[in-house]
């Protein structure tokens, strides 16, 4: 029977090969009943945005442990705007210093989850966020 399911894109942009976190999160979201589109490593911001459009995801999640988060988040957000898709919320996780949080928040990143976050927190955050909209 047809029913509404949350569709989440979990993507790893840039040359960062740390994929454990992304996989852990992807599995946790699946276990929470969501449909997770996992694109694999080394995605460009362009390919992430294109995937989000084709898959019509409810949320985009970026996993970044390379240190290039400021650039990558900004680029994805700019491209979403260019496609008229800035209404798709974007959040993420990985190794992201406290000092960079204000900037990320300012450009529109909804939330960052750092190392050691329990996946339950991530699941309940998504459920809360999507209920509101």
């Amino acid at each position: 029977m047809p029913e509404k399911k949350l569709r989440i894109l979990i993507a790893k942009p840039g040359l960062d090969g740390h994929d454990r976190g992304a996989k852990v999160v992807a599995r946790a979201l699946r276990d929470a009943g969501m449909e997770v589109i996992y694109t694999g490593l080394r995605q460009t911001p362009e390919s992430i945005v294109e995937t989000a459009l084709q898959e019509d995801v409810d949320i985009i999640g970026l996993s970044i442990l390379s240190g290039a988060h400021n650039y990558l988040f900004k680029k994805v957000i700019d491209l979403l705007k260019k496609e008229g898709a800035e209404d798709i919320p974007i959040f993420g996780g990985g190794i992201i210093p406290e000092d960079d949080m204000p900037y990320l928040k300012e450009i529109g990143v909804k939330r960052i989850f750092g190392p050691g976050t329990s996946t339950e927190d991530i699941v309940s955050y998504i459920k809360e966020m999507t209920n509101k909209s």
Binding site: K5, R30, D31, A32, G33, E35, V36, Y38, T39
Partner: peptide, 14 residues
């Protein structure tokens, strides 16, 4: 069991 899914076929079509 959970009603969720990981959709990963795309990975091969990068």
């Amino acid at each position: 069991f959970t009603g969720g899914a990981i959709l990963g076929d795309r990975i091969r079509m990068k």
